[in-house]
């Protein structure tokens, strides 16, 4: 009991700040995820193309992102681009870097979903005269989405955890705020535990949301 009281006394003054930083991390995550879905879907469809000019950029993007550390990607966006006059705020750079980083993985997930749709589904869509867009929009992607919700959830959780990397480019998200609190109090154990708990809450919320979304389709 005494230990818990002491833990609470240590962090209570910083708790509002930690919550605020956690919310910031969550917001950055949501925006990065949305960006990664757009990029991932585009890259997946491009990689399926028979035309090299369409396919190769997507292949290069996926190859580059998957083969380099996220931290280096973040540095390129935040520290590298200003060399060409493109100076982004830490948060904007962070969202773009995390979105780009996650998009390559989303592309692979979407592709695996596309491959999982039986050939007959594409053929019956073509046989009634659907064009490529209508077939994707009405027949294929709705089925793909159901298949890829679990792996996309994993990827979303990864993105959330990766927001801690943005501490190195001065985004005052949960990790950086925690470090600042530790610098002031010299109580690393208490604060890192608290940070871990807050990350856990957020990743659990994301997973729950995915479970709920999946359950809506159980009838089919």
């Amino acid at each position: 009991m005494e230990a818990i009281q002491e833990f609470y006394d240590t962090i209570s003054g910083y708790l509002p700040g930690m919550l605020y930083a956690a919310v910031l991390a969550f917001e950055v995550t949501i925006l990065a995820i949305l960006l990664s879905w757009v990029l991932g879907l585009a890259a997946a469809l491009m990689k399926n193309s028979s035309r090299a000019v369409v396919r190769l950029p997507a292949e290069f993007y996926i190859w580059f992102i998957r083969g380099t550390p996220s931290l280096i990607q973040i540095f390129i966006i935040y520290f590298g681009l200003p060399q060409f006059g493109l100076r982004l705020s830490p948060i904007t750079a962070g969202i773009i870097a995390l979105g780009l980083s996650s998009g390559a993985y989303v592309a692979e997930v979407v592709r695996s979903g596309l491959i999982a749709i039986p050939k007959g589904q594409w053929e019956s869509a073509r046989a009634v005269g659907m064009d490529q867009y209508t077939m994707m929009r009405r027949i294929i992607l709705p089925q793909v989405i159901r298949i890829i919700v679990p792996p996309l959830t994993n990827e979303a959780v990864n993105t959330l955890k990766n927001t801690s990397l943005l501490s190195v480019i001065t985004v005052v998200e949960l990790t950086l705020f925690t470090q600042m609190a530790i610098a002031a109090t010299f109580r690393p154990f208490d604060f890192y535990i608290m940070a871990a708990l807050l990350y856990l809450v957020m990743t659990t919320v994301l997973s729950r949301f995915a479970t709920w979304y999946e359950s809506r389709y159980e009838a089919y």
């Binding site: 039986p118 589904q121 019956s124 869509a125 046989a127 709705p142 089925q143 389709y217």
Partner: peptide, 10 residues
Amino acid sequence: VFQSFNLWPH
């Protein structure tokens, strides 16, 4: 009409 129906399950 196909051998394996190919109805759209969703």
